[in-house]
């Protein structure tokens, strides 16, 4: 769920690094943390065991700065890879916007890669997400080790859906930034296309920077029907090649150039996300709203004070009146 805060002018995206244990997810984040300027990144938080194995998650916030009037923030998470941490692994996936699957290129780790990928699909399904709808990049890690599988073999076993992939050696940093840049690009493209799939007044389609911060609720609602599944498939239309494409890429040739045509192909291959609605979408309107204890007590008792305004130290007279109405019972939650 891309969070957009028009008041603080922020766009916030959550990217999760998934994969089997010891495949290099934390190393990816550590490399990014070590190379990115301090002004761009926050602290790397690791909830790890004493043996430096991820217990819950690693977290690295990145702020790439002001783009078109909005600050673009990315929260990078890793999951614990070990099989028995599935409960916590699943929790990290909540609200994910993009996924990087870090696969281990060693032949004896293939079974773990497949198991982790299956587990990812299951965990996403439990949240009501579809793995085919989510932006995803595969990273074949540990390419610097001897005796590793070829990319063709890895592709055949792990990537039947044709996700974009990169070869990487996270310890020395090869492919780490390429992976991150591509997943960010796909996430932003997707956020744009999913918002564009809804019927809305043309005025809203203007660049955000040109809009005042006032609430656009004032805009007359042209069409109020919810996002219908039969929206035009063109909602996933591929954007024009970014201007940066002309920039010479210093990536070695074995890596897919970024931003390359692969991402665009990837988008075309994917089914339209227009009709996608997560089954687990919560409906906050169904939550019962209790009456405010203080307000309900204050209502109808003739006092002219605004009881909805909290008062730290009520006068003695007021204390007395509170006491009569069971103030201390409410204070300590006694029923």
């Amino acid at each position: 769920m891309v969070s957009i805060n028009y008041s603080s002018r922020e766009v916030c995206c959550k990217i999760v690094y998934y994969g089997p244990g010891l495949s290099g997810k934390t190393t990816n984040l550590q490399y990014i943390h070590s190379k990115v300027p301090q002004t761009t990144r926050g602290n790397l938080i690791s909830l790890a065991t004493e043996a430096d194995r991820t217990l819950y998650f690693d977290f690295l916030p990145i702020n790439i700065g002001n783009i078109n009037g909005l600050a673009a923030k990315f929260q990078l998470y890793t999951v614990p890879g070990q099989v028995y941490y599935n409960a916590t692994r699943k929790l990290v996936l909540r609200g994910v916007d993009g996924l990087v699957f870090v696969a281990d290129s060693q032949p004896d780790k293939m079974a773990e890669n497949i198991e982790s990928l299956t587990n990812l699909e299951e965990n996403l399904r439990e949240y009501g997400y579809n793995i085919d709808e989510l932006p995803m990049v595969i990273q074949y890690n540990k390419r610097d080790l001897p005796g590793i599988m070829t990319v063709e073999e890895l592709e055949a076993r792990l990537n039947p859906r044709g996700w974009p992939y990169f070869e990487a050696s996270a310890t020395i940093g090869n492919g780490v930034f390429d992976t991150l840049k591509l997943i960010i690009k796909i996430v932003l493209d997707k956020a744009k296309s999913s918002s564009g799939s809804r019927p809305r007044p043309a005025a809203i389609a203007q660049p955000v920077a040109s809009q005042p911060t006032t609430a656009p609720q004032a805009t007359p609602v042209a069409a109020t029907q919810p996002s219908s599944g039969d929206s035009a498939p063109s909602s996933v239309a591929v954007s024009a090649p970014p201007a940066a494409a002309s920039k010479p890429q210093e990536t070695p040739e074995q890596y897919r150039p970024f931003p390359g045509s692969h991402a665009e192909e990837h988008h075309e291959r994917k089914p339209s996300a227009a009709g996608f609605t997560p089954a687990a979408t919560v409906d906050s309107s169904s939550a019962p709203i209790e009456r405010n204890a203080i307000q309900s007590a204050g209502t109808g008792n003739g006092e002219d004070e605004d009881t909805s305004r909290p008062v730290m130290a009520p006068s003695l007279k007021r204390r007395g009146s509170y006491k009569k109405r069971g103030f201390f019972k409410r204070l300590f939650g006694i029923k």
Binding site: V2, I4, V11, I67, N68, L70, A72, K185, L188, D189, A191, K192, S194, S195, G196, R198, R200, P201, I204, A205, Q206, P207, V208, A209, Q211, P216, T219, V221, A222, S239, P242
Partner: peptide, 10 residues
């Protein structure tokens, strides 16, 4: 209406 990020944001 649901405004999203602008088209050239990415």
């Amino acid at each position: 209406p649901k405004p999203g990020i602008s088209t050239d944001f990415a």
